[in-house]
Simulated scan of single mutants.
Amino acid sequence: MTDHTPQPQRPDIHAVTPVPVRHPSRWIGGAILLVLAAMFIHLLATNDNLKWSVVWQYMFDKEILAGLGRTLLLTCLAMIGGLAIGIVLAIMRLSHNPVFQTVSWAWIWFFRGVPPLVQLIFWYNLALLIPVLSIGIPFGPQFWSANMNDLITPFSAALLGLSFTESAYAAEMIRAGIQAVSGGQTEAAATLGMSKSQTLRRIVLPQALRIIIPPIGNDTISMLKFTSLVSVLALPDLLYSAQMIYARTYQTIPLLIVATIWYLLMSTILTLIEHYIEHRLSDGKPISISRIVASLFKSRFWTSRRAEASL
């Protein structure tokens, strides 16, 4: 006999409304963080010891702005010098010459291992080790000489210490970026008759740039903060300028807040520039400032919630 029992219809999966997974711990944690943030903002707004009137008074003081200019100049020159040396070191590390490999490895090992503050103090006191710097034929006549105390100023000592430290880190980042480029492209360039230097400039480095830009941008922001170490050399950067002012006025906290605001502002601008360059290199299309700002403050929490709801 034929079974005429009606078979249950299978539900249409496309008609089912997905129910997102509940995460009460997220809401509890978020509420706690909001309460703590509100308490912090209330502290900033109501604590008279912060003296916001003094902060706004010195925000655009000529000494502060001069120190800010030195900080930005030192950051820019240290990054340029560090990247230039880092490129040479990275190429030496990838060379088949054992002498180049050993020298570059020793440079990176030393300048990554010695703290920047120690280097700044060392370079500033270099005249104790080498009183006179001379240029000439080794073990022969000298063509030029100068007193090391005249050459090593607080600015030049700071530039040497920060540039050499950056060169060690930049060399490893650049080397990793170069090695990430497919070896088949260098072989194809060789078949076209391109020399190794042409291949490096026109093929390898432009592609490695996409990989290098994010960590280099991170290093630039770190360098901006590392420049505060030069205050030990009495170089009037942003921090030391604020220190000199509060040494006269005894307004320690307001002047430190002034320096903090400027450091945060400059770090934010550098972050925006990094995001712009990174997005421009990734898709080759121009990107608006609004998209950059939105990417900075985009919350993964809400993105994950929308992703779960769309499942």
Rank of each mutant, 00 (worst) to 15 (best):
M1H: 01
D3Q: 10
T5K: 06
Q9C: 00
Q9W: 04
R10V: 14
D12C: 07
T17P: 00
P20E: 09
V21K: 07
V21R: 15
R22L: 08
P24S: 00
S25Q: 11
S25V: 12
W27S: 10
I28G: 08
G29Y: 05
G30F: 10
I32P: 06
I32Y: 06
A37T: 15
F40V: 13
F40D: 08
I41H: 04
L43A: 08
T46W: 02
N47R: 02
D48F: 08
N49E: 09
W52M: 11
W52K: 00
V55Y: 08
V55H: 08
M59S: 11
F60N: 00
D61K: 06
K62H: 13
K62M: 13
E63G: 05
A66E: 09
L68N: 06
L68A: 09
G69M: 07
L72V: 15
L74M: 10
T75N: 02
T75C: 09
C76L: 14
C76A: 13
L77C: 09
L77N: 02
A78F: 02
G81A: 09
G82I: 02
A84R: 03
A84L: 15
I85W: 03
I87E: 06
V88Y: 09
S95R: 10
N97K: 10
V99T: 15
V99P: 08
T102A: 14
S104Q: 03
W107D: 01
F111P: 04
A127H: 10
L128S: 00
L128T: 15
V132P: 06
L133N: 11
I135A: 13
I137Q: 11
F139C: 04
F139W: 08
S145H: 11
N147V: 01
A157T: 01
A158E: 01
L160D: 02
F164K: 03
A168L: 00
A168D: 01
Y169V: 02
Y169G: 00
A170D: 00
I174T: 02
G177M: 10
I178T: 03
V181C: 03
V181K: 01
G183F: 00
G183C: 00
Q185M: 08
Q185R: 00
A188Q: 00
A188W: 05
A190R: 14
M194E: 04
S195R: 07
K196L: 14
K196C: 06
S197Q: 04
I203D: 03
L205W: 07
L205I: 12
A208S: 14
L209E: 00
P215L: 07
N218T: 12
D219E: 15
I221E: 04
L224G: 09
K225Y: 05
T227E: 07
S228G: 11
V232P: 04
P236D: 02
L238A: 08
L238K: 07
Q243Y: 11
A247D: 13
R248A: 14
T249F: 12
Y250H: 14
Q251F: 14
T252N: 15
T252R: 13
L256C: 08
L256F: 11
L265T: 15
M266R: 07
T268I: 14
T268G: 12
Y276E: 13
H279I: 08
H279Q: 10
L281K: 05
D283S: 07
I287H: 13
S295M: 07
K298N: 14
T303S: 14
